[in-house]
Nucleic acid binder design. Structure first.
Lengths: 196, 196, 196, 196
DNA sequence: GTATAAACGAGACGGTACGTCAGGTCTTTCT
DNA sequence: AGAAAGACCTGACGTACCGTCTCGTTTATAC
């Protein structure tokens, strides 16, 4: 009497989408700490159990809603030179930080400081893949002689992307993530601080 | 008949300390999202009103408890050269991130993404003063010819400190904030990525 | 092409029995208010729909399980005199109250105070038939001169059986339904309270 | 430092009353199994905790609401003879069964079959006191020669009151608790079933 | 030295959301 | 077409904290 995982009513795929959209809408209206399982359920016209069957808590829903479309926004760009690749890629990232995604991302990374599962999801489904491809660009540029031999790709990437996240997350003033900022940042890191 | 704010029983100064210590203890035991006004009150043997009279919510208590001793930990160091100053200062910061303060700081910065008052407190009472002094070091180094003319101090500081906070907050892997990392990071940024 | 009520898979008759047994078992383990359609289904290894196809709710299942065997337990006894008939019959009833059936009957009558369908089922399938036969015994005894003329059979039966149910259901102390109690009760009612 | 059970804000006595009244009102509107802590709280304009602080569940509230005024309704009456005392007392009981209290009492006794605390409350706060006084009447009547020597008061009371509860709780037909019924019942029990 | 005033601990108050359970219905696949 | 499995929406459960509000008590300044 083998029931090979097919018995029973299948999960309603439309419900999943409705829930994700409701979560984002609520977050944008009330702020993401105001997102509540009960709120999502009411907004999506869905029972609470239907949500709990898919996610363990409200933040996990928001994270999924975010990851759903973040991947196609701001993908890592590959250009002729590393310098150019990073300027283009990072301008895309800065743009998404300035816009709708920044509004979601800040609370999400914030919450991830406390919620280990959230942290893991963010790492595996978003950041690691980006890192991978970026590391490749650095390695190729080293091989091609564009970048100094002996550089550690991860340190390089920290030096480039670190400041972006720093400005997003760490509140030391009112500085903005403009395209100009990205350009002068990348150039500065490529050229070094000292006079030649 | 003006009673110039001196009438009535004065606030118990010992209670303030007890509350702060209780908040930290609870945070370290349960995680900082498990810190609750009721929990602190019970732990400190204090009424809830006594806490609400001093702080608006539990995170504000934790923030105060943190700021209380963070200032004397890892103050900005000033050495003969900017490169040296940053290496020393940032090693202190890295050390505090690796230890007890990192455990508190991560949740706090996390929560500050959502709580505007927390963000403001952190900026004004901790980050801005540090920035100020660091900016001065950069400016002096430019004047002394150690650093390239025309550099914007804030971009420089982002390039140096950004990666540190990035590794603390953004989960892309298991890299650690060692002293060696700080050294190679600072040197890399000072020297630039390209071969000379 | 008429398929007159024979089409499709026939109901599994064994399932009916399994369900009834599961309901009783659960009731005896958890108390009868802990009996749940989901619980019965899980215990009987049966889908919830299979139960809903046969009964409207959990109490109806329990009622059926009870009525299944209550009829053959404690049937109304007919002896030479009414007094004897009632002593024997009521001792049987008292015995069943003291035992397993009392454990089920109390919650059932309790629930019947609220659930009109339960009340109806209990009346029609259990109590009315007994009443009928008991009334006959009373009427015959009146005709035979054993009982006073002009007595209303229903009042007589209330006076005899009422105390039994009273002790079962109404909690005024710790009195027990012993055989001795039945005997002295019946004799007292037959003889009257006043000295002759 | 003795805090003699007086510390803290005292319970709001008006809330207690509002809750009890809300519980009864809901019960009469929806039926007593439809009475819910959430419903009572909403109706009374009170937080759920305020109810849970006083009672463990909805039935306990209903029981308290019932007991509140049941004591002054239908108190045990004492007349010249036992026969008269019981006729008057039981007519009062029958009347209350026919009216508002019967509507509440049936579900309550019903639920008490399942809920041991309810059973206990009903016994101690309502039934036992009545029993006590009724027993006294029986004993006095025995002493005065109105009743046969050697009668057990509890069996006598069962024979008198049992039928009343029987008709209230056990569904064998549509017989009503009229004054006439009470009279013929009491007389029958006093006189006995057999012709003299 | 007696008011007056504020802080204190305790704990009740009306709320919101939690995560769970069961209800009764509906939708699959299997027999 | 019935059965099992299991998803669906609904509604109530009992709990935890929220931030506010009495209480009675304590501790200080002001008159």
């Amino acid at each position: 009497m083998i029931t090979h995982g097919k018995a029973g009513r299948p999960r309603d795929q439309r419900a999943t989408g409705t829930i994700l959209r409701a979560a984002l809408a609520l977050g944008e209206e009330l702020g993401f700490d105001g997102v509540t399982i009960e709120g999502i359920a009411a907004r999506a016209g869905v029972g609470k159990t239907t949500i709990y069957r898919r996610w363990p808590n409200a933040w996990a829903v928001v994270m999924d809603a975010f990851l759903e479309d973040v991947t196609r926004i701001a993908p890592v760009q590959d250009r002729a030179t590393a310098r150019e690749s990073f300027i283009v890629s990072m301008k895309l990232v800065a743009k998404s930080f300035r816009g709708r995604h920044g509004k979601i991302l800040r609370p999400l990374i914030g919450r991830a400081q406390i919620d280990e599962n959230l942290r893991k999801a963010m790492t595996e489904r978003w950041l690691m893949p980006r890192r991978q491809r970026s590391r490749e660009i650095v390695r190729r540029a080293i091989g091609a002689g564009e970048l100094r031999k002996g550089l550690e790709p991860d340190v390089v990437l920290d030096a480039l992307y670190g400041p972006l996240y720093h400005r997003l997350l760490v509140p030391y003033g009112e500085v903005k993530l403009t395209d100009g900022y990205v350009e002068s940042l990348v150039n500065m890191v490529f050229d070094g601080l000292e006079p030649r």
